[in-house]
Write a protein that binds this DNA or RNA. Structure first.
Lengths: 213, 213
DNA sequence: ACTTGAACCGGACTACGGTCCGCTCAGATT
DNA sequence: AATCTGAGCGGACCGTAGTCCGGTTCAAGT
């Protein structure tokens, strides 16, 4: 892990480079780009009206008036498509915690930022629960997915700033476990937890991990 | 959650009742029981020779000379079959941490037991990695699966005995995140962690969660 | 404008998980 | 022993993710 430490306030160009979600590739052919847009719109519409859990690749292809192969060529697999649909929302959230106003964004005490991150993350998750659930369920390894990676790096950074030592990535992943879509869903439905309890739980875990006795 | 608190040394009958993995149901018809055995043997053999990730339900049915419907009737779905294959190993491990000798079993200091649990769990996981990975990947919700539940209850118990307060189930699940098959696999392969680092990480997380400053 | 070849496209095809339903037979009852 | 009934069984069937390949179209170079 020899990545340059990431300066907090970033120029616009560096900002978009820091967001690893698919930017429109300029070398992409015009027809391909057109189809990507058609597909994303079709997928979003279908999700809106039938729910993410009922989204099929055939339906997306048909709704976009495009062959099935094209869907897979553009997005790789179902997880990729779902991720692409989440992209806009995801970017907004990433912007908020990386560049937005404190306490979520830079400027506040790292522990306050950690706290705020959990709360914001849980709310963001609840707003898009089905999509994140589905994306999790589908992904080969949720740990390799861009959203999780960005969050993990962010948490590692904050933990470092908070003076925590140890395996920061492992601690970050441990924290992230508390915000995992499937886990949150399990706690809310399987067990009868409330969102408030999860938020309180997050703060508690953060306090313990950061060792603030 | 109004379950009777679980006394630690248990009579043999109570012990097997405490293990929620499928015991042979006495009301099961003889032919059904025969088929279950045939299927489990076939599945185990196929996994042995081709790997769990290549196990298909059709292949199991064919190898056991049984209709496909029978496989699903017996085990519900692929996750159930994999879980059943893991059953024996899983029981041994559960026995070890619930009833075996200290520091893993009862008798030792709860924090020492937590430490030992992580180490033993990681080793047990590494010994059966593919099977657990596959079982995770398949399961509708890994949080609802019996193995995870047993572990979660166990950890809650130990946390309580260690005098930790707060949402014990949430803390237990947070700890379990560190031992999740997919996560461990990701840390070992995706990132270049070693088993030693994961064991050290576990101890560190336990120390932080149990608030031992 | 024309050529060219690489990127793209479509939809038939495969593989696999899971369901369904009519038939069979184990084992309880008399 | 004869009867009965519902658990058990098999395998055809379905839906969906993902692959493949022959034909098509874009756009760069001339």
């Amino acid at each position: 892990m020899t990545q340059p430490s990431e300066p907090i306030p970033l120029s616009p160009e560096a900002r978009s480079a820091a967001l690893p979600l698919h930017d429109q590739d300029p070398s992409e052919r015009a027809d391909a780009a057109r189809n990507r847009v058609k597909l994303l719109e079709a997928a979003a519409a279908l999700i809106q009206e039938r729910g993410a859990e009922h989204l099929t690749m055939d339906a997306v292809a048909a709704a976009a008036c495009v062959g099935k192969g094209t869907v897979f060529r553009r997005f790789g697999d179902r997880a990729g498509l779902l991720l692409a649909v989440l992209d806009r929302t995801e970017r907004e959230f990433q912007d908020a915690f990386m560049f937005g106003p404190p306490p979520l964004g830079p400027g506040a005490d790292p522990i306050a930022r950690l706290d705020a991150f959990g709360i914001a993350s849980l709310r963001h998750l609840l707003d898009n629960m089905n999509l994140y659930l589905e994306s999790d369920r589908q992904a080969a390894s949720r740990y390799a997915a861009p959203p999780r990676n960005v969050r993990a790096r962010h948490l590692s950074l904050l933990l470092g700033q908070a003076g925590v030592d140890g395996d920061l990535e492992l601690l970050a992943q441990t924290l992230l476990g508390t915000l995992d879509a499937t886990f949150v869903h399990h706690m809310l439905t399987g067990r009868g937890s409330t969102a408030q309890q999860l938020e309180a739980g997050w703060s508690d875990v953060v306090a313990r991990i950061t060792h603030r006795c």
